[in-house]
Design a protein around this nucleic acid. Sequence first.
DNA 1: ACAAAAGTGTTGTCTTTACACCCATGG
DNA 2: CCATGGGTGTAAAGACAACACTTTTGT
Lengths: 258, 258
Amino acid sequence: MNTQREVDEFVKNGHREYLPHVSIDSVIFGYHDQQLRILLLRWRGLEGWGLPGGFIRRREPLSQAAHRILQERTGLEDLFLQQFHVFGDTPYRVRERSPEEFIEKYGLDIGHDNWLFERTLSIGYFALVDYSKVTVRTDFFTDAYQWWEVGEIPPLLFDQNEEVEKALATLRLQIYHQPIGYNLLPEKFTIPEIHSLYETILGKELDQRNFSKKLLALGLIRKLDERRAIGPHRSPYLYQFEKEAYEEALKQGIVHTY
Amino acid sequence: MNTQREVDEFVKNGHREYLPHVSIDSVIFGYHDQQLRILLLRWRGLEGWGLPGGFIRRREPLSQAAHRILQERTGLEDLFLQQFHVFGDTPYRVRERSPEEFIEKYGLDIGHDNWLFERTLSIGYFALVDYSKVTVRTDFFTDAYQWWEVGEIPPLLFDQNEEVEKALATLRLQIYHQPIGYNLLPEKFTIPEIHSLYETILGKELDQRNFSKKLLALGLIRKLDERRAIGPHRSPYLYQFEKEAYEEALKQGIVHTY
DNA sequence: ACAAAAGTGTTGTCTTTACACCCATGG
DNA sequence: CCATGGGTGTAAAGACAACACTTTTGT
């Protein structure tokens, strides 16, 4: 959605293509350089940072909509993507919107009864991606993007800081039940990398010896016969996820600590 | 909603009071007689069993709507009530509805463009109640209710068997993180009662000695100096939840097995 | 007295935690 | 040769799992 024509059409007639009153917001976690980051977009006009999101087409399955929105934004398919909460309690999510601001900022000629001003619940999804593989696309409403460290998220538009918090809390809980990492790490990774990923997500230190023992004991990763030369020190071995064990753990669920 | 007038008003003008395209479905778990049961309603006209549910008022916070719907149906307030999933993927949740059936069965005079026939996503909530305290109200659309054992749920309307499955799966996962039981049991309960509750929820046997040791070790329950005489055998002691420890566990989350 | 269910401890095994030194590499 | 970070094992403590007999009570 980049041309003025497309935007006009979306604003005026979007309710014919999309369901009103419900949107999808995505908290996209990416990992790189030992940092867990979240993709935020800068909204033109509103002059603030916010989550990527979108609407559900009238005949589109919900989860397909979530995948589509992410794919349009990042180019990635087949992500780990999961619902985590529906937001509909904060004053922003209860009120109808006031259109004046919007109209003025975007210079769009729309009436007060436009579908975009109606109360809209937001279904939160979170995704895990290897962010070196992502090519972010902006559009008419967004003029910049940035990967922000989870500890340094700026004040976001609307109630979205709350959404990010909830996504993080869900991710931390999931890590005890699912072998998270497959989608956040490159295909081959080192123990220090995955170790640091888990420390970052959980926000606490994990003993390095115990950590690798545990992962290997669970059979979730396999040591390869290669190393990665990355600095003036010993080169770490590379590992891969064991696809079958991983899928199994995803399906069955697991209960464990680290 | 019981009089024909009220129903007419709801069907014709409900979209002015309620958000279209989104509904709430509640899976209400009740516990009694060593059985975990779910409250189902029999829908008049459709001649089938389904979940209690309702719509969100236009200016009503989402979680307030969930509580209201439950309160209207069961008379209970202050329940443990939690979102578990948004359903929007099944064919039923993607299609617009076909109105003919509905119109014929209820004898209502409404057009094909009525708001109730539009595609509607459903936000699933589950609740935990002590079902001896519940007084169920039926209404125009429902002519009976029944508490069904979780293992014997009949085929439900629409995609609701799936919703029940998902609620159960969520409950089983939560039990490892939260001190479930407070809302399902009477204020004072016996070890055999809570033991059986956990066995029922998890669908497996739990060693009785280990189980009570664990709960006491966690400090979640306190032994009282009373017993309950319930049969031709030794009378079990009564226990209470330790409110403070319980609240703390709810907030912090816990990770443990049974 | 008997049937039915409650109460109660111990032990072996497994899991978790704590902990420190040497090794490899690049500059 | 030195700074940096990677790799590795063991022991103690704690958690978990398995197990069976005695007590109480109503009929």
